[in-house]
Design a protein around this nucleic acid. Structure first.
Length: 227
DNA sequence: GCATTAATATGGA
DNA sequence: TCCATATTAATGC
């Protein structure tokens, strides 16, 4: 779905772009490094050129709630764009990641002149909102087991499987922080799923064996209509 | 290579 | 939910 970043897809076509892409700033970020701090002022928008990140928000007693994960080609920090002055989220690289950054002024100029880009961005926002609402439901109505399964399906859709394992390495704690539960609960659900031969694990790597069965188990909550 | 720390897995209050 | 502990993986020297 995200074949190349939004910017490249839309902006290489017309002339405005070269000026725009000229003003971008590129930088890299090592695994575990946080490049957006909660509370920092918003000055623009980030795009992931390559790599993977997690987006989170710190709740009470310092527990992090992972809002979403993002793969290469995706946009980061868009919630703060527009009206908000300060980020309400933090973003950390899950592996070595290359990013590019566009300033607010710069981006506003392009949004006003390149309608197909603006339209694409709007679709992206609409999709995010949809997902965000689905997440509220999942947290409030699904059981722990269902939420963990939901997280696994989400990860599979977003990152896919490579060499039989999910193409991203997450700790059990990170699964927990996404599913809104605890590390122990995730470990327990994983063990149960392994017993039923639905998933397998090797160290931190996770393999989904029967994703259609897992999807069926949470299908009554029909969520996973995701980017 | 080994020693130390971090993460995982289970059991139980 | 929280804590204790055994096992296993990752990291530093």
């Amino acid at each position: 779905m995200n074949t190349g970043c939004l910017i490249k897809r839309n902006l290489n076509l017309n002339g405005i772009v070269s000026e725009f892409t000229h003003e971008k700033r590129e930088f890299t970020c090592k695994k575990g490094q946080q490049f957006i701090m909660e509370g920092a002022p918003v000055n623009g928008l980030f795009f992931i050129l390559s790599g993977k990140v997690k987006v989170f928000r710190t709740g009470i007693n310092g527990r992090e709630q992972i809002v979403r994960f993002a793969n290469s080609g995706e946009i980061i920090g868009h919630r703060g764009f527009g009206t908000q002055e300060y980020y309400s989220i933090g973003v950390m690289a899950l592996e070595d990641t290359a990013l590019c950054y566009f300033s607010k002024d710069n981006l506003q100029k392009v949004l006003l002149t390149a309608p197909n880009f603006t339209y694409d961005l709007m679709l992206f926002y609409a999709n995010e909102l949809n997902r965000s609402e689905a997440k509220v439901k999942s947290i409030s109505q699904m059981t722990v087991r269902e939420r963990v399964i939901d997280a696994l399906i989400y990860i599979e859709r977003k990152f896919g499987q490579k060499n039989k394992f999910l193409d991203i390495v997450l700790s059990r704690r990170e699964y927990a922080n996404y599913a809104g539960t605890t590390e122990e609960q995730v470990i327990r659900v994983f063990s149960a799923l392994k017993k039923d031969n639905l998933i397998d694990t090797k160290g931190k790597r996770v393999q989904i064996i029967d994703s259609s069965f897992l999807k069926r188990e949470i299908s009554e909550h029909n969520f996973y209509l995701d980017s």
